[in-house]
Design a protein around this nucleic acid. Sequence first.
DNA 1: ATGAAAGCGCTAACAC
DNA 2: GTGTTAGCGCTTTCAT
Lengths: 360, 360
Amino acid sequence: MSTKKTSPPIQHQGAPVHEPLPRTRYKSGNPTIRDVAKLAGVAPITASRALSTPNAVSDLVRQRVRDAVAQIGYVPNLLAGALASRKSRLVAAVVPDISGPVFLETIESLTNTLALNGYQLMLGQSGYENSREDALLEAIIGRRPDGIILTGAMRSDQAKHKLKASGIPVVETWDLTDSPIDMLVGFSHEQIGKAVAQFLHAKGRRKLATISGNDDRSRRRARAFIQSAESLGLGQTNGVVPACYVPAPTTLASGRAGLRELLAAAPDIDAIFCSSDLMALGVLIEAQVRRIPIPSDIALIGFGDLSFSRDLEPALTSVRVDGALIGRTAAEFIVQRSERQSVHEPICNVGFSIVERATT
Amino acid sequence: MSTKKTSPPIQHQGAPVHEPLPRTRYKSGNPTIRDVAKLAGVAPITASRALSTPNAVSDLVRQRVRDAVAQIGYVPNLLAGALASRKSRLVAAVVPDISGPVFLETIESLTNTLALNGYQLMLGQSGYENSREDALLEAIIGRRPDGIILTGAMRSDQAKHKLKASGIPVVETWDLTDSPIDMLVGFSHEQIGKAVAQFLHAKGRRKLATISGNDDRSRRRARAFIQSAESLGLGQTNGVVPACYVPAPTTLASGRAGLRELLAAAPDIDAIFCSSDLMALGVLIEAQVRRIPIPSDIALIGFGDLSFSRDLEPALTSVRVDGALIGRTAAEFIVQRSERQSVHEPICNVGFSIVERATT
DNA sequence: ATGAAAGCGCTAACAC
DNA sequence: GTGTTAGCGCTTTCAT
């Protein structure tokens, strides 16, 4: 017969095996690094090292720990690790609204770049109003992310202050501001507006107009566009460049409606700058219905260079911003900062380009 | 004179006030609940209660704690809270690819519904291959989310097993499977394929065809569509329904190419079922270029009912699935489960509808 | 209604 | 290279 019984067998080792007796309190039930260590016959910290810094332990230990992990299906509790090490490997991204397809490319490359470095993305939607900003920020900061990436939200001063006070690295994206909270990856909306006006002028257009979303950044592009155009004398006979503002997020329908509105007010326009490609598609469709030939009667240029724009008929000219580059750069900024390397030049202007196609 | 000096005053209470002397190790610097408690003149646990269960403390204490919080700008460390309470208030969502606009609506309503209940969303991209699934899963489970929401990824058995073993509530979405891991919010892709074939038949179409993404679910819709159509005798003279498979994610360009391919193989088709609205738009454009009138020569029906589809010219008929409802329901399932209420009926078929517009 | 003690599961800081 | 100890900041348990 053996000692195998249901009651605990007498132990030969020096240390008593009983848990400090009446101490079973609250446990989750999942295996912990202690279980792994016990099974591998090492101290918990050694097991920890075998997993996080494999080079710091002997080959033998490393292998035994790995076996133990596999055997009991151990998955490290990163919450506990984060608490102890003050590195959560979590990065938060805040977007006004995910369904505006503009930021998708950025979020996608952000997620991927972060994943490559062992970080995870937390997503927050701020909406286009400021109301939820504060609660959202609290929820984010409370999770002690290693970085926060903003895409044009967070306009309130209180929010800015909270962010600064938190000490968490912040990257503002899709814009260049004069007083960044911390780091910056973006481009100038003003320069885009100006460049588009000049581009259309160079193409021989003389009666410009614009349809723009009413969010802050679209408006700034529109304003710069209008100013440049007016100073080049590309407005109506009264000097004014007609503009139609529609609610953000912009849609195909707002593009169609925008064209109707512009034509009603100024039938002789010969070029339109849309603040999104989706709206430009709307203009294209409305023009086709009204048998207004594009680009011969009206030239058209969008913003965002969505993936489908090149395949429209006629193919759409658009302002291209490299959203994936923005995401990648922002992620790299955070990763660098969080590995305690200071970021060399934490301001990055990714610029933009005008992709000329058939609509101009 | 008072006892106020820089050296610690002699205390009248029984307990010694000195920290167990030489014990300053590693701290984060952020204010903690201890700081709040000290300032409010209560024990840490009381401060904690004042914030998490305000009704459990007196009005006076509640107010003093709130003042203290505001004064020092305290933001609770949710990581620590999660570790202690085993509730992270974090929910993970896994999508194959965020830029496929189909899931956007779901993610958006997911994020919002979760936020309303004090939860935060973690996003993971699995890609359309299985390679990253495992690492992603480990990163997710390690954070001990209160729930995991899957949108059609996680096909490997190992992944399924890991999920089950973790004990974390799981909601699979955008599909109905026979052997769900846990909870389910979706609809039948097979029924859609069948319904579309019958719909086109009822519209008098007799030569059906399809352009489909090559991902699992699009293929299942296509297969059911083809089977139904063939059994209704709606194929070519040899009985076969022509099908063109393109790589996921589908694009406008693949729609254009798909139409060309179909016409080359079977010039007499009179209806096409596209596995995405974006592809259907591509077909629309290609048809327009080739002066094939839609719907008179070819009827067209898409899938997803994207927001722009109703505003196309002609307006696109599409299979509508309520993505927002899926997101909301999934979020509610998780929230209910995590508040220890068991979910009444953890399988939800949200169904679908065919939104008939001008292209049919 | 409030508090003291004891962890949640992990890793940083020191030994040896 | 490995182990010991003491927390990270919070909440649970139990007592008053």
